[in-house]
Each structure stands twice: as C-alpha cells, then as structure tokens.
C-alpha cells in the first residue's frame, strides 16, 4: 500500500481498455462518414485559367452528395408546402389516433362484454390489414358509397345527400385512413398504460367517494401517462414518416413534393436527401418535446427526477473545470 506524503491513500481508477478500443473504432467510422459526405467527384471537365505559359488547368469537381442542390431546394415553396401537408397529416392522424385509442382502451377494459368485444374487434381489424391497403380503400370509398346521405335506415327518407368525392378529398381520405389505423395501435399502448397503474390507487380514489369517471380522469390517466408517453412519441415519429404513404393516393406532402420536382429535373438523390433532412429536423424537435413531456408526467415517480440535457451538460462542464486544479493539487482531493 502506497501513501502520499500527507498520509492519504491514492485512488487509482479502473482502466477500461475495451472501452478505449471501442471509442477508437467509433471515431474511425465517424471519420469515414464525414469524409464521404464531404467528398467531391470529378465531372470529367477541365477548367483553365490564364493564357499562354501561365495557363493553368484543373479537373472540375462537384459534391458527391450535391449539397448545393440539396440546400437550394430545402427552402423552396414547393418543398415547404409539402412539409406543411406532412405536418398537418401527422397532427390530425395522431390526434384522431390518440383520442380514439384512449376511448378504445377504456372500452376494452370495461366490464361490459359488448364494449370490450367491439374494441377488440376494431383493433383486430385495423391492426390486421396493411395501412397502405387502408389508404387505398378510403381513397376509393366512393366506389362503395358514391353518395353520402343521412336518413332513416330501411326507408326512403333522406335528410341530405352529397357526392362522396366532392366532400372527401385525398387529404381527408389520408387523415381518416392514417388516424383510424393509428387508433388501433394507440389503444394497445393506452391499455398497457392503464393496466400499469396499481389497483390500490383506484381503491383509494373510490374510498374517498370518487366515481369511476373521476377516478379514471384524475388518478389513473395521469399515472398511466408515464407509461403511455414514450411509445406514443415513437408513434408520432413513425406517423411522420408513414404519412409519406399518402403520396400514393396523390397527396402532395413532403415526399410527394420531392418526387414531383425530381420527375421533372431528374435530380433524384438530392431531392430525396432534401426530404430526408426535413424528416430528421422534425424528428429531432419531436424528440426534444418528448423528453420534457416524459419528465412532466414522471413527476412523483422518482425521488430525484433525472437531469435535463442542459443540466447534465452544465454539470459535466463544471466537472471538467473542477478537474484541472485537483490534478495539480494533492491527492486526497478526490471527494472534492
């Protein structure tokens, strides 16, 4: 046992050899990616400057990933309009999905067999068929129902009647199809959340005289949220991208706008990249929102809530700053 001059014992941290090898490998891969992203290709042309003896020529190159074209289209009105439609689709479909999903989950857990059976059947049907098929069916719904009318069944009485295609646009068909499909998934997520709440919570609420609806709203739902939010965040991000399927039925959302442009100018890769970059931007924003939502609904669940990324960064910086003087100082300053 070796001790320092002042008698305190020196702490030697464990060396993580494997971890350093991993870090080195990761750095190499990152370097390769950055290199290829920023690489340039020769166009086959040469550019020359000057005349006579001072004439210099060099091969003309261009970005492998055509970044100039990617960023040129990034903010064009066509792409931005597509982005707006994508956001609209995502928001409406998720709103339908979440509200209907919650209703279905509560129905599914109801002691009433008819209610729970209907909810089960709904989920079975909408989860059991491809979402692309559902999109096409809603898009073509006028084949089954050329007119929408409200009347009394089995009689000729009708209060109003309109052509389906005049009120049901492709965008609306996409909202309905994606929303109803999402509800099936959301209902399972919500059900898992509701089941995760301890039975004792319901008993306690009941014992102070709350009725079933109040218990659900004020006691069960808020606690179920902690379990419901993370997979719902997943669903939102997934919906953002699934909404691109709507381009199949002629909705010009983000991907639709990109394909429209490249079918005219053949800049296929740059425009796919433009669309991808926008999807990444929105996903990033959504992830940040999800973090704070989770924190809000997780209150009370842990004795000390986890730090926000900002708090963690500040803590890490403080740690690094604090490290330097202690290197020069005496050992034994370990506990700081």
């Amino acid at each position: 046992m070796s001790t320092d001059g002042d008698g305190s014992i020196k702490v030697v941290p464990v060396r993580h050899v494997g971890r350093w090898v991993g870090v080195a490998a990761a750095l190499v891969v990152v370097a390769m990616i950055v290199h290829t992203l920023l690489s340039r290709l020769p166009t086959g042309q040469r550019a020359c400057q000057g005349t006579g003896a001072s004439r210099v020529c060099h091969a003309v190159t261009e970005w492998r990933f055509s970044w100039d074209i990617v960023f040129h289209y990034f903010t064009t009105s066509e792409i931005l309009h597509g982005l707006l439609i994508t956001l609209e689709l995502t928001v409406i479909a998720m709103a339908v999905g979440i509200v209907l999903g919650m209703v279905l989950a509560v129905m599914r857990l109801s002691p009433n067999r008819v209610l729970s059976g209907s909810a089960w059947t709904y989920t079975w049907f909408f989860r059991g068929t491809p979402v692309l098929v559902q999109l096409l069916v809603w898009f073509n719904i006028a084949i089954l129902y050329p007119r929408i009318s409200l009347g009394i069944p089995f009689t000729a009485l009708s209060f109003f009647s309109v052509h389906t295609n005049t009120v049901f646009t492709p965008l609306e068909a996409a909202c309905v199809a994606l929303g109803l499909n999402e509800a099936a998934y959301m209902s399972e997520i919500a059900r898992a959340g509701l089941l995760s709440v301890d039975e004792g919570q319901v008993e306690a609420a009941t014992s102070i005289g709350m009725v079933r609806r109040q218990t659900l709203r004020y006691v069960v739902m808020p606690q179920a949220m902690r379990v419901i939010i993370p997979p719902t965040g997943n669903e939102v991000i997934s919906m953002l991208k699934t909404s691109s399927l709507a381009s199949v039925i002629g909705v010009i959302e983000l991907l639709g706008a990109a394909t429209n442009i490249y079918s005219a100018n053949y800049e296929i890769m740059p425009l796919l990249l433009t669309a991808s970059l926008w999807y990444l931007v929105v996903t990033t924003i959504l992830s940040i929102g999800q973090f704070y939502l989770e924190r809000y609904f997780g209150r009370g669940a842990l004795r000390t809530p986890p730090p926000t990324p900002l708090q963690r960064m500040r803590h890490d910086l403080a740690g690094i700053v604090a490290k330097f003087p202690s290197r020069r100082g005496l050992a034994g300053a370990v506990e700081r």
Binding site: E203, A204, S207, I208, G209, V219, R299, A301
Partner: peptide
C-alpha cells in the same frame, strides 16, 4: 359514492396518489 365519501379508509400499503404532492 356519496355514502363512501363519509367513510374514511386507510390501507396497509398507503395507496397515496403517486403523481400528486
């Protein structure tokens, strides 16, 4: 529920509402 409101109950496992102060 109205009847129950006037009968207090205390449980072995407390059953406090975890998400509330």
């Amino acid at each position: 529920c109205a009847e129950r409101a006037r009968i207090g109950m205390v449980f072995q496992r407390f059953n406090l509402f975890q998400h509330l102060t």
